[in-house]
């Protein structure tokens, strides 16, 4: 196994854990964390791909992931702003159908 292959495996595991978190935890902040985990899995995959030949490292995936990191943090901040707004309006931190009754 090569080093990129190992990191692809980590990426897949982190992505799968993120999917599970998204499905199983209705609390919205937890869902946002799970989405971030999935995003990090994708980033890891792209960067491992950039290194598949250790002699020539491909800068294009690096640039894409750099853009992705900034977009991920701004999307996270936006999502958290909506969660805070939801909490102020309703006192809830999960969506209707998911709330424990």
């Amino acid at each position: 196994m090569s080093q990129p292959a190992l990191f692809v495996l980590i990426a897949a595991a982190v992505f799968a854990i993120g999917v599970y978190g998204l499905l199983s935890r209705p609390q919205l902040v937890r869902r946002i964390l799970a989405l971030n985990l999935m995003g990090n899995g994708v980033f890891l995959l792209l960067v491992a791909f950039a290194r598949r030949n250790p002699e020539t490292i491909d800068p294009v995936p690096h640039a894409m992931v750099l853009t992705g990191i900034v977009i991920a943090v701004s999307a996270t901040a936006f999502a958290l702003a909506i969660v805070r707004h939801l909490y102020r309006q309703t006192g809830e931190v999960s969506l209707g159908e998911d709330r424990p009754r």
Binding site: S2, P4, A5, V8, L9, A11, A12, A13, F15, A16, I17, V19, Y20, L23, S24, G41, L45, A48, F49, R52, N53, E55, T56
Partner: peptide, 26 residues
């Protein structure tokens, strides 16, 4: 839920594998 997560991870790993096997313009 576990099945969905495993499926997602599996598809991800297969895609990743395919990506890694793309010929490098060496």
């Amino acid at each position: 839920r576990v099945l969905m997560a495993l499926l997602a991870g599996g598809v991800f790993a297969v895609l990743g594998w395919a990506l890694l096997s793309i010929e490098v313009p060496a």
